[in-house]
Design a protein around this nucleic acid. Structure first.
Length: 253
DNA sequence: TTGTGTTTTATTGCCTCC
DNA sequence: GGAGGCAATAAAACACAA
């Protein structure tokens, strides 16, 4: 691109007298210098710009005559004004986007904090649950104070366990003979007697505990995976959904 | 007063539309 | 091909702190 200095030499500012609309004004000025528009001129141009930011030829001529400027000057002013408007508009758009982003970020942060809080609650509750389960296992079976299962539930379990044991599959049930309830089930394989759906009420496998038969070998038979019924499930039990009740039920995987 | 940053006016070259 | 718009840029004018 040709430099502005070269450009000025080639076509000096206001070098063409027939382009001038207000010669009286410009005769007082040096034709080589840029001049700022007067505040009145700028005010009228602004007003015109507010009405319509594009300049059709007729309006350009009228404005130029009215303001004592060259049509070219009016056109250039509108051009530059549109550029300034565009820049401002970009800034406004940026501000809108930024405040929207900030708002979303704030929402995200609060949701994230809530999530972390809930996670730590889960961890804490799991820890409590593990302690409870451990206490239950360490307590001698004869001293267990757990509420006995209603007879019909106990019957269902014992019948099922008996059925399972007598069907030839490898495994055994641990039953507290002093009360008609199942205290544990030992099976060999992963395909447990109890269908997966029936585990819906289990909170979690609490821990593995060595059985009395444990000889230290890792044959897969000597560890109890302990499940404890959730309060909800115990409550459901009271309302008759007996099969989901897993209180005092030990399952060995 | 002067150096420096910002704003305004104007030019250039390219592009699109009629 | 000419008119007009736009982006990029130059340079004058202006503002302001040191």
């Amino acid at each position: 691109m040709m430099s502005m200095e070269e450009g000025s030499k080639r076509r000096p500012f206001f070098s063409s007298p027939d382009e001038l609309y207000d010669e009286e004004y410009y005769e007082e000025q040096s034709p080589e210098k840029k001049r700022r528009l007067t505040s009145e001129q700028v005010h009228m141009l602004e007003k015109s710009f507010e009405e319509e930011n594009k300049l059709e030829p007729e309006r350009k001529t009228q404005l130029a005559k009215k303001l004592g400027l060259q049509p070219r000057q009016v056109a250039v002013w509108f051009q530059n004004r549109r550029a300034r408007w565009k820049t401002k508009q970009l800034e406004r758009d940026y501000d809108v986007l930024k405040s929207s982003y900030d708002s979303l970020l704030s929402t995200y942060d609060s949701i994230n904090k809530e999530n972390e809080k809930l996670k730590s609650e889960v961890v804490s509750l799991n820890e409590k649950l593990q302690v409870q389960a451990k206490d239950m296992l360490e307590e001698p079976l004869s001293e267990k104070k757990a509420d006995p299962l209603p007879v019909d539930i106990a019957q269902i379990f014992s019948i099922k366990v008996d059925d399972h044991m007598s069907s030839g599959s490898v495994g055994s049930a641990v039953v507290d003979e002093s009360s008609p309830r199942v205290v544990g089930v030992i099976v060999d394989s992963v395909d447990s007697y109890f269908p997966a759906d029936n585990y819906a009420g289990c909170v979690a496998p609490i821990e593995r505990v060595q059985s009395e038969e444990d000889d230290g070998s890792d044959d897969g038979r000597n560890y109890f995976d302990v499940f404890v019924a959730s309060e909800t499930e115990q409550h459901n039990h009271e309302e008759g959904e007996a099969l989901n009740w897993w209180g005092n039920m030990y399952y060995v995987a």
